[in-house]
Structures are given as C-alpha cells and as structure tokens.
C-alpha cells in the first residue's frame, strides 16, 4: 500500500518579524503508512507544528514536496481532497470549535464539502458516538471540559470522512484526565477504525503508546524508531530538552555501573523483570 503521508526533501523557510530568514524545516524525509500510530516529539520550536501543517496543506513546501494519499500538496486542485482525507486537531480546544452547539460544530466540516442533510445527520451521530460524546450533542461547547472539547474536535474530523488524523499537541492545555481521554480515544480509533494517527506531543508517556516515535530537533528528524528504541537513548533525549521515562533512565544508569541489563527497557515492569532474572 502507498504511504498515507510521504515527504521528500521537505524544506520550509520563512521570514520572521526581524527580517531574518528562518529555516523551520530542513529537508525532512518521512513516510507514514496506513493504520500507523506515529508520535512526533521535540522541544518547543523544533518544527513539529510546522511539519504538521504541511500534512494538511495549510503550509506549502519552500522546497521538496509532500504527498498525502499520493496527492501533491503543491497542486491546488488537490487541496480540498487532502483536507478531507487528513483531519487536523489543534492545541487550543477553545480556538477550533466554530459553532455554539456541539453537533453543529461536528457538522461544520461535512457541510463545507456539501454532504446532503440526511447523510450528514448520520455522519455526525457516528462521529460523536466514536468519541463517546453523543450525549452532549446539544450542549454548548464553552461549558465542556478541555478533554471533551478536544473530542468534539476529533469528531469533527471523523465526520469529514478523514482516515488520517494529525493532532498538534492536542493535550498541551489539558489536565491529566483530559490527556487520558484523548490518548485513549485516538488509540481506540486507530485500533477499531484503522485511522492513521500522527500525534504530536511533548508528553513522553503519551509517545510511549505509539507504534513509532519520530524525534524532531531544529527542523530535522534527529532519530526515530519504536518507543523502545527511542526512549532508550536517554542522554540524547536530554540534550534535546526531552525526557526519557524513569525506568529507561534507571536502566541507563545501572548499565553504566556495570549491570548487565538488556536494551530497550522503558517500562517499570520490564526493568523489574530484568533485575529479578539476574
């Protein structure tokens, strides 16, 4: 199968307020396969949000290209098809809800692409059910919790018919309960509906749940791999302003002190097993 998202030499250069040329992205090569759950991590300003906006043709490459479902984002005719297939959820739950009633907001996307009324109702209902928000369909968004608002935003992309959802730090402004809600919702959609998920975050605990983790630094991919591979690189993560899980740090320290501990330990249980089997 063709990758859902593919970038070739993706470079993004912009001019900042002080008239300096800034290279936000410098030659990104990546592929995201159908059904994958990919986490992108990186410090503030590492370019991960800029990258996300290229996946939805909200930004266009200065050099190189981005193909979404095989469609080049530089071709203007592809624009709406791309945005329909790849939904986006942004950081601030308050700033992406358009309508003053939950179901009206979920309907906003499909209304824009001209879905007939009967099908629309069905889509909205299905989408709200998928994120477990059906009972709130007639509520006013400003009275919902942060996690609930973000789930409404996710439903909005589902109603649009997206089979790939790009989430740009969806949990940065949420409390721990809201964070769990969003991560669980996305894992469920990924497993049950085979939605491809690109999940940008700076919570390492969330990234640990992904199939693959891409680490960004200064507009480039620093390294990538399975959570086990990525989070074992304790000192490299730290120099990038990121943090490895405690178990990985322990494994790293114990190895330094001469303990024979296998690679790829990132959870408490794995560490406990490794230590008890000696």
């Amino acid at each position: 199968m063709d990758p859902v998202i593919e970038t070739k030499g993706l470079t993004h250069v912009y001019i900042d307020a002080d008239n300096n040329q800034v290279t936000a992205l410098g030659g990104i090569e990546m592929q995201i396969e159908p059904g994958e759950f990919v986490a992108i991590i990186g410090a503030n300003g590492s370019g991960k949000s800029t990258l996300a906006r290229h996946f939805n043709a909200l930004l266009l490459p200065t050099e190189g290209n981005v193909r979404v479902h095989g469609l080049d984002t530089l071709e203007e005719d592809n624009l709406w098809k791309i945005r329909q297939n790849t939904g986006m959820v942004f950081q601030n739950p308050d700033n992406q809800i358009v309508a003053a009633v939950v179901e009206e907001d979920v309907a906003f996307g499909p209304e824009n692409i001209g879905v007939p009324a009967e099908e629309l109702k069905q889509r909205v209902e299905d989408a709200l059910r998928a994120v477990d928000m059906l009972e709130y369909r007639e509520h006013a968004p400003h009275l919902l919790s942060g996690g609930q608002k973000q789930r409404v935003a996710i439903a909005g992309t589902l109603a649009l018919g997206s089979d790939c959802i790009v989430l740009d730090e969806p949990t940065a402004m949420l409390d721990p309960k809201g964070r769990k809600e969003i991560l669980n919702t996305m894992r469920k959609l990924n497993k049950e509906q085979h939605i491809t998920v690109v999940y940008i975050t700076h919570f390492m605990t969330e990234a640990m749940q992904a199939d693959r983790v891409i680490v960004m630094s200064e507009g480039k991919i620093a390294f990538q791999g399975t959570p086990k591979e990525v989070f074992s690189r304790v000192d490299e993560l730290e120099t990038l302003g990121l943090e490895a899980p405690l178990a990985a740090k322990f494994a790293f320290e114990l190895r330094k002190s001469g303990a024979k501990i296998p690679d790829g330990i990132i959870t408490n249980e794995e560490l406990a097993d490794a230590l008890s089997s000696r």
Binding site: R83, M88, Q96, V98, G109, I113, G114, L120
Partner: peptide
C-alpha cells in the same frame, strides 16, 4: 482550523 475543515465560504455548503 476552519480552513483545515474545508471551509471556503458559502458556495456549495449544505446544512444539517
């Protein structure tokens, strides 16, 4: 966010 959700004015819009 509106642009990402395919908003392009009133042309061709339907209503739920």
């Amino acid at each position: 966010a509106m642009e990402a959700r395919c908003y392009r004015g009133g042309e061709g819009r339907t209503r739920m």
